[in-house]
Structures are given as C-alpha cells and as structure tokens.
C-alpha cells in the first residue's frame, strides 16, 4: 500500500516530505527507542513513534524507512522538521495514541511480522 493511501484512510497530517508520499509501505514498526529501530526496523517500514528529536530523521533516512508517524499529536522540534524537509523523509502526525494508530494500520493490512 502506498503511503498516500494510508495517509488518506487514517487521516494523517503530513508536515514534511510530502514529495515522497508515493512510497510503498511494506510493513510497520513501532518503537520509541532509536537503538531498537536502528537494529530491527526494515526497509520501507512505516515507523510509529512519539519521539520528536531530530535524530529520528537520520535514523529513518539511514534505514530507508517509508516514513514516520508521530502519535499523540506530538509536534516535532524545529530542527526535526527542517531535517525531514532536507532529507525528504515523510513526517506525518496523528492525534491517536500509538496503540490505537497501530491497530488501525494493522487492520489496513500493514503487517508487523518479519519475513
């Protein structure tokens, strides 16, 4: 499923990287610990987190993730936003808590199982 479709169906707000919304999303990854994401997330995963620190962009870019969804309506720090634009990493926001958002993504067929 394309990121743009997920964005529409779950009413996510795009705050950066709108040029990369046609990326294909392979699966989902949820974590607030950067070391965990670096170790375990896979290419084209959509990353659900409430970390707003600018390092999340570097991690997403390095791991070639499909994008980042911030939960709980978290607003990213200014540096984070700038970096996301620079690196063209899709940064989206949802007012939902992580559990609820992941549940809805899961129902759309975005899996969390590793192949």
């Amino acid at each position: 499923m394309k990121l743009s479709e997920i964005m529409q169906r779950l009413q996510l707000e795009v705050i950066a990287g709108s040029g990369s919304l046609l990326r294909e999303v392979n699966g989902g990854y949820a974590s607030d610990l950067l070391s965990d994401v670096i170790a375990n997330a896979q290419e084209r995963d959509l990353w659900v987190t409430l970390q707003t620190h600018q390092n999340i962009i570097a991690v997403a870019s390095m791991k070639e993730l499909a994008g980042i969804v911030l939960v709980n309506a978290r607003e990213p720090e200014v540096d984070t936003l700038e970096k996301a634009k620079e690196e063209n990493v899709p940064l989206l926001v949802s007012p939902l808590p992580a559990f609820e958002l992941i549940g809805r993504l899961y129902k759309l067929g975005i899996s969390g199982m590793r192949t």
Binding site: L33, L34, S35, Q51, T52, H53, N55, R74, E75, P76, E77
Partner: peptide, 12 residues
C-alpha cells in the same frame, strides 16, 4: 510538551 534537553543516554 516535547521539549527536552536530555542527552541520548537518558532517552534510551
């Protein structure tokens, strides 16, 4: 909310 001066080791 969201503002923090915490270093990475604290975040982890």
């Amino acid at each position: 909310p969201g503002f923090s001066t915490a270093p990475d080791w604290v975040r982890e």
